[in-house]
Write a protein that binds this DNA or RNA. Structure first.
Lengths: 257, 257
DNA sequence: CGACCGCTGTGGTCAGACCATAGTGGTCAG
DNA sequence: CTGACCACTATGGTCTGACCACAGCGGTCG
């Protein structure tokens, strides 16, 4: 029982403690695989398994060759890991697409409300990137896939403007995990150009509501925007419709999230 | 450049496509590592790296020995993967604790509102587990760590009652990722018994508000519950307090996230 | 008939080898 | 002195083979 933990977990834990202790910081290089192996008393293959996990989780980036930019370098790019996790769990039926959509709805309405509050309090976040993305989406020659890619970036830009990196990464992962379902839903739309027109109008409305500082309205617009598209493509979650701020007009505040 | 993808990614992609195609389902056994290696034309070590990723992500469970329960078996336990991802990202400074707290706030208020709506619409979810957890927490002989563990389970039980597995897993991960910070904050409290008393009162209030079907009230109670504790321990997000539906009815609202 | 025991297949781990890559530093021609 | 070139070296990426621990399975023997 002295050595119950598996060898690769030893490596993982070592890196984690070093991170927490400040020995390792973003930008630092990890010791080489061979050095780690001898230092920790495990085989190089076990080290590699741990590094592979760290890489997929977005904690490190590996590069061959020599020099300062080679080896395993601590980065902090949670999006890839979040995407991989959610995507694979969806594939394995661990997550239902409807739950993904509902979660995205929760987060995105929260983002809109936050941005609106920022605008109302004077500290207006710069939404120039969101704006230029919308302009780029006006191009009628875009294919559905291209349009949806810009659409995703637009929503991501809103999340980034809100400032919560956890939500940014989660949103990106949620979106990525159901990307195939989104694009697969395009042919089921009655009319793609009509859908584009509606989406663009709603995008402009979202931006306007956010800029106006009306949190509740922004929330409602975003809610309808998301549920509208997923309803058209048959992916809507059960709870989404009931959670609409519009269907609960008596409340002053509406759902925060 | 035809073979840019690394060997372990080949394995990962193979498993993913098999999952999406229905060839693999939860409960199924993966082929043995040696078989996978020869089938995919890669080395066994590469297969192991991919399996390690799948294991950490909560997609498979591995066991030695022989028989039907051995080998790599498809499971869908996203919680472990979510916890590992968030915890390591926090360690690597990829995620700020304040952002974790704020995200938890967003999700948990959403959960409370959903549960209240369920109750209001007659389809009352069974909160018997939440109730019994609260009863167990009344035990005054519990240590802070034990109490907080039950506290976490209480909140998790609410999330489960709401039914969204993505939110359940995310909530669990968020909580796990900052667990060390939560317990570290206990000594900074003015009085632990007082804190327990307040938390318990708030827990009962949450349950009552949810059962009453008042979504807005439930949201507010949960909001104050979470922000209250984190504020006492100095972990509160910058915007959390300002976003309260109670404390900011007018205009001085700050950012949520 | 039942307990026992070896066989076999599984993951877990290690060691060694080889390859591709990319800096690094020295060499040599101009 | 300068610059292009090239061997060297350190790095990750991969494969192979080997061995171990474990757990079920099935034949064997009392």
């Amino acid at each position: 029982m002295t050595d119950e933990t598996r060898a690769w977990q030893t490596v993982l834990r070592s890196v984690e403690t070093d991170l927490l202790a400040g020995v390792l910081k973003p930008g630092d290089r990890l010791p080489g695989e061979r050095a780690l192996a001898t230092d920790l008393g495990v085989g190089r293959s076990s080290v590699r398994e741990a590094l592979r996990v760290l890489e997929v989780l977005g904690l490190i980036r590996t590069a061959t060759g020599s020099g300062p930019s080679s080896g395993a370098i601590i980065v902090s790019t949670p999006r890839g890991g979040m995407s991989a996790l959610l995507r694979l769990q969806v594939a394995a039926s661990g997550f239902a697409v409807a739950d993904i959509v509902d979660t995205r709805l929760v987060l995105e309405t929260s983002i809109a409300a936050t941005l609106a509050r920022h605008a109302a309090s004077g500290t207006a976040p710069k939404l120039t990137e969101s704006e230029s993305l919308l302009d780029a989406m006006e191009d009628a020659s875009l294919s559905p896939a291209e349009f949806l890619a810009l659409d995703a970036r637009f929503h991501a830009s809103l999340a980034e403007a809100a400032g919560n990196q956890v939500i940014v990464a989660t949103m990106a992962g949620l979106r990525d995990s159901i990307e195939s379902y989104v694009v697969a839903g395009v042919p089921t739309l009655p009319s793609w150009p009509d859908a584009v027109a509606r989406l663009m109008r709603e995008h402009r409305d979202i931006l306007a509501a956010v800029r106006a500082g009306d949190a509740d309205h922004a929330r409602g617009v975003v809610h309808d925007h998301i549920t509208g598209y997923y309803a058209e493509t048959g992916l809507s979650g059960s709870a989404a419709a009931a959670a609409s701020p519009h269907s609960a007009p008596t409340s002053t505040e509406g759902p925060i999230a």
